Each structure stands twice: as structure tokens, then as C-alpha cells.
Simulated scan of single mutants.
Amino acid sequence: MAGKTARHCLFWVLPCLFAINLVLTAGCAGKNARARYSASNNGSSCYAKAVPAAGEGGLAWGPTLDMARKKSLDNCMRYAGRSGGTPNTCQVVLSECRH
């Protein structure tokens, strides 16, 4: 008798869980997707990329070349340190402004 009750309960529980899952998923699907970060800030037309000898580098945007270079070096040092690289070897390898 206990086996019959368990199967009967399972017959209703699984479809209910599936329906709840669909409702929750549908509620999130309509929201606009937003990027976690913006490729460039409003008004930032210059960018720079800095890379270390080992590890991850950094790309940054700024209103001037000097600001973009400074930010990319800061990012490079941070990312290289996190990735087990060599932060003290970061160098800017690319910098330019869009027109």
C-alpha cells in the first residue's frame, strides 16, 4: 500500500516541480539582457592595452591616451597578479584614439 501512495504522490510532484521551473524561467526570460561591463564609457574615445611577460593583460578606455594607458597598466597589474603572472613586467603594447 505504501508503494502505491508513493507512486501516486510522485505522479503529482514531478509535474508540479516542472511547472514551477517553467514559470520561474519564463519570468526571467523577458528581462533585457545587460552587459556586465561596458566596452567604453560615454565619451571615452581612447583605448590602451597592456600585457605582462606572463599572465593576463588589461584593456582600458579613457578620455585621453594618458588616462587609457594608466588604467590599462593598473588593470594589467591586477589581472596578472590574479592569474599567477608577473605584474611588474606590464607594458602598454597598443594605444590609440578613435576619431
Results as ranks from 00 to 15, higher is better:
residue 97 C to G: 08
residue 74 D to T: 04
residue 83 S to E: 06
residue 87 P to L: 09
residue 92 V to P: 07
residue 11 F to H: 13
residue 86 T to P: 01
residue 56 E to R: 07
residue 88 N to M: 05
residue 36 R to L: 12
residue 23 V to F: 15
residue 28 C to Q: 12
residue 12 W to N: 02
residue 44 S to N: 15
residue 95 S to E: 13
residue 33 A to W: 13
residue 54 A to F: 05
residue 19 A to M: 14
residue 56 E to Y: 08
residue 80 A to G: 05
residue 99 H to E: 13
residue 56 E to I: 04
residue 9 C to A: 14
residue 35 A to Y: 12
residue 14 L to I: 15
residue 21 N to F: 15
residue 87 P to I: 04
residue 24 L to R: 14
residue 97 C to E: 10
residue 89 T to Q: 08
residue 88 N to G: 02
residue 62 G to T: 12
residue 26 A to M: 08
residue 31 K to F: 03
residue 90 C to M: 08
residue 28 C to F: 10
residue 42 N to W: 08
residue 48 A to L: 09
residue 4 K to T: 05
residue 21 N to V: 00
residue 65 L to Y: 01
residue 39 A to E: 12
residue 85 G to V: 02
residue 71 K to P: 00
residue 34 R to W: 01
residue 98 R to W: 08
residue 93 V to H: 06
residue 32 N to C: 05
residue 89 T to L: 07
residue 65 L to M: 14
residue 98 R to V: 01
residue 35 A to N: 09
residue 76 C to D: 01
residue 36 R to G: 07
residue 29 A to C: 07
residue 1 M to A: 13
residue 65 L to F: 00
residue 85 G to I: 06
residue 93 V to L: 10
residue 41 N to P: 02
residue 78 R to V: 03
residue 85 G to S: 13
residue 80 A to Q: 06
residue 60 A to Y: 07
residue 31 K to L: 08
residue 84 G to S: 05
residue 99 H to D: 13
residue 33 A to L: 10
residue 61 W to D: 13
residue 25 T to N: 13
residue 39 A to C: 05
residue 14 L to A: 14
residue 80 A to I: 00
residue 51 V to E: 15
residue 50 A to F: 02
residue 92 V to Y: 13
residue 35 A to L: 14
residue 56 E to S: 02
residue 44 S to A: 11
residue 48 A to Y: 07
residue 98 R to A: 11
residue 92 V to K: 05
residue 70 K to G: 02
residue 37 Y to T: 03
residue 13 V to Y: 06
residue 83 S to K: 09
residue 88 N to T: 05
residue 33 A to I: 06
residue 55 G to T: 00
residue 37 Y to H: 07
residue 25 T to Y: 14
residue 86 T to I: 05
residue 12 W to G: 03
residue 37 Y to W: 11
residue 79 Y to R: 11
residue 82 R to H: 10
residue 1 M to D: 04
residue 44 S to M: 06
residue 65 L to T: 03
residue 13 V to N: 04
residue 2 A to W: 11
residue 85 G to K: 12
residue 79 Y to F: 13
residue 79 Y to M: 06
